[in-house]
Nucleic acid binder design. Structure first.
Length: 594
RNA sequence: GGUCGCGUAGCUCAGCUGGAUAGAGCACCUGCCUUCUAAGCAGGCGGUCCUAGGUUCGAAUCCUAGCGCGAUCACCA
């Protein structure tokens, strides 16, 4: 567990004192941040120490406090409340800490990438429809986790698996063919992904109509779905695709390229990127091969109809299909192939993170077991970063029912809202149109990302399209605004930034801000361990709140003492850097002015 | 039904590797712009931390059971 410099320092001092008394305390010394209603910056909880010391918790605290004060010149005082020893550090200590932090460029960031390679998968779209709100949470989360790991010193690779083959894209193809006009996205003035999605919807309409017609003729629903001419045609396309029919493959490539063109515009606006794309069309054959291999090794079994299964009953699970009776691949097949390909591509890969919704918890549990059964030692290094769905007030998003919040539309709405609000405040005098639109983009996208990332990933969250996302309180715009505030002060200051630590006397809000700053590296570490951007988001919010209190109570530029001004400038400069880097880990930019 | 996850203020969420009187934001009410940006600050209102047991000096946090909500258990992806 990472600790702040203060905790490490006191840990040593306290242990030395205990050793002196002949006590060997095995566990971690329980330090925590002092609650704000008490004096002090760090608190030692002495309940666990009472027994080994043979005294009451209060006495233990009193004894240790007294001894610490005598032996450590950096401690200014202490107070004891029940079993809590609140330790107050000297101004000198904090001034020196400030100087330390100031001397580090990108404070909190690992100085070298000496931690192992991690692959983070996110997005993983199907190529038959545009990205929606669920993808936004997925992408922001995965991208941010990769950034946090990199910041903490890992080598990282960001990847997506594109589900570019299968019946879904064949449906869009069938509708496009049936339309007969050989349209391109330009003809309808649509983004490529929207265009292909449009045909997917067209297919569904035709399919439903045909099923209804057939049922009107007295045919059962099941049979009608089976015999619907559109569905028959789509299945025919899939078979032709698998047998590498030239025309079908050409159309497939064309349709997918339209989709990619659309996706890349969306990704660009989202500001997420990938180091490498994997395509299901390139991995499903590997999966098939490995499944057959597993069959021959007796790991899997075959039913009479030719389908291949794995029996997971010893793991308390069911039988799972790995290859259909007609020999075609299922979802699991390609995931097996993809995992293997990734570890083969990257011999130094230490582990892999799959950012996928919690509806697939079971699927990944099964996948990892299968990989282990196949004998891959790295199977235990696969981790499913499972996150909760984004629900609408009306319930779950369902593309077929049209209750999907489109990613492009939502981003556009957010930027428009940001623009309206910003113009209303009227602080943009002298800004060029280009700078303004950049600012609106930054605020709108920031608010959206922050909204989706500040919540614990594993929690389900609610999004109400009727209520626009807040721009006040625990939001990105508040943080961005505070950053702009700091920058505005820094622009006015031209003096020296050196200060004499011995001449610094701290105001309470100033001291709190310093304490808050000292936690940044700890938070980064925790976020990297827990794969949780939410920890970073909430930390930055707390830091910024601390800054605003300080700002409101303490004059920064107007103090008469040069050392004090230089110190405060150094302090807020560091706060600005941490805010910028911290928000950067969430993919959110902060402006110089707003 | 089995398995997994969640349940904290009117709403959205922190806190969950056990520690002090459970914290924020939104909403509602009061103050603060001739002083470094009021997207801010200060204060007020608002809680059976789902319920019942258990472990502990100490439980929102850990354990057990129950209730509620959700996901999942396909020759769909």
């Amino acid at each position: 567990m990472t600790r702040t410099p203060l905790e490490s320092l006191l840990d040593q001092s306290v242990r030395a004192l205990l050793t002196e008394k002949g006590i060997n305390f095995g566990g971690e010394l329980p330090f925590q941040r002092t609650r704000k209603e008490f004096q002090g910056e760090v608190t030692l909880v002495t309940f666990p120490l009472a027994k080994p010391m043979g005294v009451s918790p209060e006495q233990a605290a009193e004894t240790l406090g007294k001894a610490l004060l005598e032996t450590n010149g950096l401690i200014a005082g202490y107070n004891v409340v029940k079993g809590f020893l609140n330790i107050e550090m000297s101004n000198r200590y904090w001034a020196d800490q400030m100087a330390n932090m100031a001397s580090i460029l990108d404070y909190g960031k690992a100085t070298s990438k000496d931690k192992p390679l991690v692959m983070v998968e996110y997005s993983s779209p199907n190529t038959n429809k545009p990205l929606h709100l669920g993808h936004l949470r997925n992408n922001f989360l995965g991208w941010s986790v990769a950034e946090i790991l990199a910041f903490a010193g890992h080598k990282t690779k960001k990847v997506q698996i594109i589900n570019d083959r299968g019946i879904h894209i064949c449906k869009s193809m069938q509708a496009w063919i049936a339309d007969g006009r050989e349209l391109s996205p330009e003809d309808l003035g649509m983004k490529g992904d929207k265009f292909v999605g449009h045909f997917y919807v067209e297919f569904d309409k035709a399919f439903k109509r045909e099923v209804a017609d057939l049922m009107a003729k007295g045919i059962s629903e099941e049979k009608a779905k089976e015999d619907s001419p559109s569905m028959v045609a789509a299945r025919d396309i899939l078979i032709k695709w698998e047998s590498e029919d030239k025309d079908i493959r050409a159309l497939w490539s064309k349709m997918n390229s339209w989709v990619y063109e659309g996706f890349s515009k969306t990704y660009k606006r989202m500001e997420v990127d990938f180091d490498r794309n994997y395509y299901e069309s390139e991995t499903y054959l590997i999966g098939k091969e490995k499944v057959l291999d597993g069959l021959s090794r007796g790991i899997f079994y075959q039913q009479e109809d030719g389908s291949i299964w794995v029996d997971l009953e010893t793991y308390g699970m069911d039988q799972k299909l790995l290859l259909r009776s007609d020999g075609t691949a299922v979802y699991m097949t390609q995931d097996i192939g993809t995992a293997i390909l990734r570890f083969e591509d990257n011999p130094s890969l230490a582990y892999q993170i799959y950012t996928v919704g919690n509806e697939q918890d079971y699927h990944f549990k099964v996948l990892f077991i299968i990989l282990e059964l196949l004998g891959y030692s790295w199977a235990k290094d696969c981790y499913h970063l499972s996150y909760g769905m984004v629900d609408l007030p009306s319930g779950k998003m369902k593309s077929r029912e049209g209750t999907v919040v489109d990613a492009d539309d939502l981003m556009e709405d957010m930027v428009t809202t940001a623009q309206e609000k910003t113009e209303e405040l009227g602080k943009l005098e002298g800004m060029s149109a280009e700078e303004k639109s950049e600012l609106f983009e930054l605020i709108g996208l920031g608010a959206l990302k922050y909204f989706l990332l500040k919540v614990d990933p594993k929690k389900r969250m609610l999004f109400d399209p009727e209520e626009s996302i807040d721009l006040q309180g625990n939001t990105a715009p508040f943080i961005q605004y505070s950053h702009a505030r700091i920058k505005s002060i820094l622009k006015r200051y031209e003096g020296a930034k050196d200060f004499d630590s011995s001449k610094i006397s701290l105001e309470e809000s100033e001291r709190q801000l310093l304490v808050e700053l000292s936690y940044f590296p700890v938070v980064v570490d925790e976020a990297a361990t827990a794969y949780s951007p939410a920890l970073v988001a909430n930390y930055i919010y707390g830091l910024v709140k601390g800054f605003n209190q300080f700002y409101q109570q303490v004059p920064i530029l107007k103090d008469g003492n040069g050392d004090t001004v230089a110190f405060r400038i150094t302090l807020i400069e560091k706060v600005a850097e941490v805010v910028k880097n911290g928000m950067g880990l969430l993919g959110i930019s902060v402006p110089e002015r707003m």
